[in-house]
Computed example of a mutant assay.
Amino acid sequence: MRVTAVAGAAGALVLGTVGYTAYGAAEAAWTGKPYPVADPAAVARHLDARTQTVYEALALRPEATPAPDHRGDDGITARIYGACSARGLSHLLESMNDTGADQPRTAALRARFTLTGVTRPEWEEAVGRARQSLTAQGWTVASSDESAPVPSLTLTPPDTGPGSLAESASLRFDPAYHTLEVSAGSECASYPDGTAVDQEGRPADLPTGTAPTRPPGR
Results as ranks from 00 to 15, higher is better:
R71L: 15
S190K: 06
A67P: 06
S186M: 03
Y177I: 04
T77F: 02
R61P: 09
R105N: 14
A108F: 01
E167L: 12
P36L: 04
E27V: 15
V43T: 09
P149T: 11
Y55D: 10
V6E: 07
A44D: 02
S133D: 14
P157N: 05
P40Y: 03
A9M: 13
G201M: 06
G138I: 09
P216E: 01
R2I: 15
L60Y: 04
G138W: 08
L13H: 02
Y81A: 12
L155E: 08
D48P: 07
R172W: 07
T65D: 09
A78S: 02
A184H: 04
A12R: 06
Y55R: 02
T114I: 05
S144L: 08
P66N: 01
A204L: 04
T179H: 04
L153F: 03
S147D: 13
D102E: 07
Y35H: 03
R172H: 09
A38K: 02
G24C: 01
G161S: 01
R131T: 12
T160G: 08
S168W: 12
E200K: 11
D174M: 05
T116C: 01
A196F: 05
V3G: 14
D205Q: 12
T154A: 14
A136Q: 15
L93A: 13
S183K: 03
D98E: 12
L134P: 06
H46V: 05
W139D: 01
F113H: 09
G138A: 04
G161L: 02
L180A: 03
T208Y: 08
V14L: 14
V150C: 01
